[in-house]
Design a protein around this nucleic acid. Sequence first.
DNA 1: TGTACATCAGTGAACGCGCGTTCACTGATGTAC
DNA 2: TGTACATCAGTGAACGCGCGTTCACTGATGTAC
Lengths: 226, 226
Amino acid sequence: MPQGAVGTGLLYLWYSKNMATVQKRKGSETRELILGFAESAVLEKGFAATSIDELIAAVGITKSGFFYHFKDKSDLAKALLRRYLDAEDAILDDLFGRADELNEDPLHGFLVGLKMLAELLADLPATHPGCLVAAYCYQDRLFDQSVRDMNREGVLSWRARFRKRLDDIAERYPPTVDINLDDMADMVSSLVDGGIILSKAVRDKGILPGQVMLYREFVKMVFATR
Amino acid sequence: MPQGAVGTGLLYLWYSKNMATVQKRKGSETRELILGFAESAVLEKGFAATSIDELIAAVGITKSGFFYHFKDKSDLAKALLRRYLDAEDAILDDLFGRADELNEDPLHGFLVGLKMLAELLADLPATHPGCLVAAYCYQDRLFDQSVRDMNREGVLSWRARFRKRLDDIAERYPPTVDINLDDMADMVSSLVDGGIILSKAVRDKGILPGQVMLYREFVKMVFATR
DNA sequence: TGTACATCAGTGAACGCGCGTTCACTGATGTAC
DNA sequence: TGTACATCAGTGAACGCGCGTTCACTGATGTAC
C-alpha cells in the first residue's frame, strides 16, 4: 500500500541521478519512469485528467515513444494497476513475514505486524499518496472489465491474506464475541483505504496509522485471553 | 452518505414523471436535475471525465442553458459538494435523532443508531454509489482551495459529530482500554468510506453494512460494562 | 574479424474530434404604476 | 385593466485548444554466420 510513496520516491531519486547526464536508457527503465509519473498523477487528478503529454514531458520522450511502450492509454491503466498490486503484495509479504519470524504465536505475530504496518505508514514523509484500487473504484466506467476484475481480485487477495491469519489465531484463541471473520479481514482494507482518504482530506498524515492501531486494539479485544 | 443513491433515485423518478410531458420547468428544478446527473456521473467516472455535453443531453437543455446555472465547470464542482455535504448531514441528523428518541442512554442510543445506519446501507437497491468526499480526494488537483477546504470540513464535522457521542458515552461508561476518542470517531468515516470502496470493487453490497456492524461491535467492547 | 540483418527504442508530422467557454440574442413570465 | 419594463431560463453559433491515435521513418545496439 505505501508503494505509491516509496516507489515514486525511488523513481525520482533514480531520475535525478541518471537523467542529469543525458545517456541512452534501457527501454524498461523508460517504461518504469512513465509508470512512476503516471501513478502519482493518477492519484492526484484521476486517470482521465492525466494526459499522455504531461507524462512524456516529465520523462523526456516524444508521444510516439510512449506508444512504443503502451499500445494505448488503457494499456497504461492496466500496467499501472498490475504493478501496484504486485508491489503491495511484496510489501505485505515482507512486513508480515518479518513479524512472523520474531514471533511464533499467530496472535502476537499479527499484532507485531500491525504495529510495524502502522509505523511504516507513520514514517512516510507526507500523507500517503493514495491507493490505486480506491482511485480506480471511483473511475470505474473509464476501464474495461479486465481492469475492474483485477481490482476485485486485489481486494479479495487482501481478504484471503488476513482471513488466513485470523483463522490461525482463532484456532488458538477462541473469539470472545460472535464475529464474521471475512468482515474482520476486510476491515484492514476498509481502515487503510478509509484512513488514506481521511488523511488526504484533512491533510493530517497521522490519521491513517491511527486507524491501523485501532484495528490492532480491536484484534486484541476480540481474541482476548480471559 | 447514502444520499447519492437516494437522491439520484428520486431525481430519476421526478424525471420520468415530469419530463414525459414537455412543459416549462422552474430553473431550480433544472439545476437540481443537472446536479443529480452530475453526481452519479462523477462517482462513476470522475469529475474530469464527466462532460457538460453529457449532462445537458441527459437533462435536455443546450450548453448555454448549463452556463446560465453554473458560471463554469468548477462552479458545478462546488455546488455538487455543498449539496452532498448538506444532504449527508441531514440524513445523519435524522437517523441518530430518531435513535436517541427511542433510547435515553447514550451508549444504547448510539448502538441503535449504528444498527439503523447499517440497515439503511443494506437496504440500498444496489451497491452504494459512492462518497463524493472520497471521489474528490482522489482528484484533489482538479479543484481549487475552497473545494479542498470544504472536503476537509466535511470530514471534520463527522469527527465532531461522533466525538461528541463518544464523550457522552465515556462519561457514563469508562472505556475498558486506553483509546484515542478522536481516532475512534474518525473510524466511522474510515469504515464507511473504506466499506464503500470494498463494496464497489468486489461488487458485493453486503460488505459496507458489515463494516458498520463491526464498528458497533467495537463500540460495545470498548464501553463494556464489566 | 567483418558484414548482413533484426530488433530496440524511439522521432516527427499530421489527424480529427470533443471539450469548456463566450457572446449576442429571445420568448415567456412577473412586477410596478 | 393595460402598458412598460425587468427578470428568468434559456437558444444558437462560433471559438480555439488539447487530447489520444496513426503512420512512415530512423539510428543505435545485438546476433548469426
